[in-house]
Design a binder for these strands. Structure first.
Lengths: 161, 161
DNA sequence: AATATATGAGACCTTATTAATCCTATTTAT
DNA sequence: ATAAATAGGATTAATAAGGTCTCATATATT
């Protein structure tokens, strides 16, 4: 798996829309500017997000994007996989046909497990949690926030290291 | 992070050498053939493995590669990161300088945690465990599971190629 | 010492993917 | 009707991956 720039932008876009709130219309220009995303690139990304049902796109004058779901109902995994497809850590998992021995390979199993673990982690994070303390925008641009700790967000998981 | 082909080949190579056993010399040709790795590509990969102290390379006639550590002491993480560098799931983590807001970004924290989790998972797997039941070679190609002794290898090297 | 064999190291090429941009069409508020 | 905004596909640019080639170097064998 590789988090592409498109995926990073998508996350930023969804974060911004989540801040605005479900159902609020925001112009592409504003999002692009505030979240530091190339405008044209954002247009393409938005199409994927719209296909996935995450946002609605309004054309025409006073057009823009609208968050269609409650931020709490949108997981990080959902947004990521909308952009890059189902996560898999290696080709052997993504295209088992290309691997002659995947069926009875111990390494294969490890990658499968690791992938599941990663997907579960990302699935446990939703955008309501993220906007509570996320500031993936320039400090000068984003609105004031209480500096809450993320530990509350990920506390259900075992702390690594 | 992206598991490149070079990393997959490196794992196969290390698996093969682990089967042979620590200290056993095996020719590059044999490994390449048995583990289905382009010979020249394997040469390049081996250099990285050697730099990391995982194998020793013998040049000259009857040259080849030798496993320098006990398979039980070699983790999957070690081999993977030798090939692709320290694992990180997105650029924001790998090159924080490029991300203007990484310090106080909740998403950033999630990626950090996910990365640590993944690295820990891969760190818990060693090559002794893997060879116990791994068969990442073609069933028809790979040899019996008992590791060869050095004498056996040297004396049976009369066959051409 | 000479020769054959095997790998070292890095340059080089080819292809694939990513990232971004451009242009024309379409939609919608006023 | 007009202006404002996005749609959607084509195109380009940059980067990285995967693999190959060549010459240099090391070593066993005779």
């Amino acid at each position: 798996m590789r988090l592409t720039r498109a995926a990073e932008y998508a996350i930023r876009c969804m974060l911004y829309l989540s801040r605005q709130g479900q159902g609020v219309l925001t112009s592409r220009q504003e999002i692009a500017q505030q979240a530091d995303i190339p405008t044209h690139f954002l247009a393409k990304i938005a199409q994927d997000l719209a296909k996935a049902g995450l946002i609605e796109i309004r054309q025409g004058a006073r057009g823009g994007f609208i968050l269609r779901k409650n931020p709490a109902a949108i997981t990080l995994l959902e947004v990521v996989e909308t952009m890059i497809g189902e996560i898999s850590l290696n080709d052997c998992i993504a295209r088992p046909a290309g691997c002659k021995v995947s069926y009875h390979c111990a390494v294969h199993r490890v990658w499968l497990d690791a992938r599941d673990q990663l997907r579960n982690t990302l699935r446990q994070v939703n955008f309501e949690q993220l906007i509570t303390d996320a500031s993936c925008f320039l400090p000068s641009l984003h609105m004031p926030l209480e500096p809450k700790r993320l530990e509350t967000i990920v506390s259900s998981r075992t702390d690594p290291q």
